[in-house]
């Protein structure tokens, strides 16, 4: 009797989502990417097709951020200028994607208008050739006002827009359907809600291969193990054939890391923790690599040194 093969085999895989569109495809990007496609667990290539490579999206905010100095230093004077900021991320720091985060539209903050956001989007689209993610401020009423304008202004660019939530998905999903974009579906560290949001959006007839899942990520020391377990379970369900779990995954490591005291605390506050200039990026890189191992397809990041470290580690893991 022949010995059975010892490798794991799976019956299904992760959907492939296309980001960005070139001029021929109706957009203006100089490069497009595909994510997803894995038919086995991350970095287990001998067992099957590992799918498309993980992409790093670097955050660009539409207002000058209040970040720790260790994080602002590498950016120099571009932080008030989203177009120059995005260009630096792509050309100097090797960002695969730019995530334009519309914090400036927050009604409790700068309360910028939808038209302001569109102007920023256009400036960033003009400055870089990589595909864009555009992420709302998180206040539902304002996002419902701003994001449809972003969607219409970026029509044809095959943007990745988000996030859609269980309580607020219709407006954004309808815009994505109308303007040909991809959609991020958010769940608050809850696999059941993730499945529910995906189902609701697909019922609206957004094709499944235009959805990316987002579990609010959690940084190292702040619940990353929950994010890891959920993502792992999502991926195993996808590989076993659960169509509502087959969407690629995005993680937000930059934001989560740089609100942790372990990354934020200056040297004077925590001398026993080592130099912040090393500690901060290391915290971000460690969180990102953990989530890459859980099957992340896009990771949002902030510190260029962390981006470089993660890219190096991923390359080594991919062999």
């Amino acid at each position: 009797m022949p010995l059975p093969a010892l490798k794991e085999t799976y019956t299904a895989g992760v959907n492939v989502v296309t980001l960005g569109a070139t001029r021929d495809q109706g957009g203006t990007r100089s490069v497009t990417y595909q994510i997803g496609g894995a038919k086995t667990l991350p970095f287990m290539d001998p067992d099957g097709d590992a799918g498309k490579p993980l992409l790093i999206a670097m955050d660009v905010l539409d207002i000058e951020p209040e970040w720790p100095e260790v994080l602002t230093a590498p950016y120099g004077d571009v932080l008030g200028n989203p177009a120059a900021w995005a260009k630096k991320c792509v050309e100097e720091f090797g960002a695969d994607l730019i995530c334009l985060k519309l914090d400036g539209t927050d009604p409790d903050g700068a309360n910028r208008s939808g038209d302001d956001a569109v102007a920023t989007l256009k400036a960033v689209l003009g400055a870089v050739g990589v595909p864009l993610i555009v992420w709302g401020c998180g206040i539902d009423a304002k996002d419902n006002e701003v994001m449809p304008k972003i969607s219409a202004a970026g029509k044809g660019e095959r943007l990745l827009l988000g996030p859609a939530k269980q309580e607020n998905y219709k407006r954004l999903a309808a815009s994505c359907i109308a303007d040909g974009h991809n959609l991020i579906c958010l769940a608050p560290l809850d696999i059941n809600i993730a499945k529910q949001v995906n189902t609701l959006v697909i019922e609206m007839e957004l094709p499944a291969d235009r959805i990316v899942m987002f579990q609010t990520s959690g940084a190292l020391g702040y619940g990353i193990e929950y994010a890891y377990s959920i993502q792992e379970r999502q991926r195993l369900a996808a590989l076993a054939g659960d169509k509502m779990m087959m969407m690629p995954v995005i993680c937000d490591v930059g934001y989560e890391t740089w609100r942790c005291k372990e990354a934020k605390a200056p040297d004077a506050e925590a001398p026993e923790w080592g130099a912040q200039a090393i500690r901060g990026p290391m915290w971000e890189a460690a969180s990102a690599i953990a989530l890459a191992n859980a099957g992340a397809d896009i990771i949002r990041m902030r510190h260029p040194k962390a981006v470089a470290a993660v890219k190096k580690a991923i390359k080594a893991l991919q062999g």
Partner: peptide
């Protein structure tokens, strides 16, 4: 064997 969601009866048929 399948993950629960509020619409699981529907999503299992999709």
């Amino acid at each position: 064997r399948i993950i629960y969601s509020d619409s699981y009866l529907k999503s299992a048929r999709m």
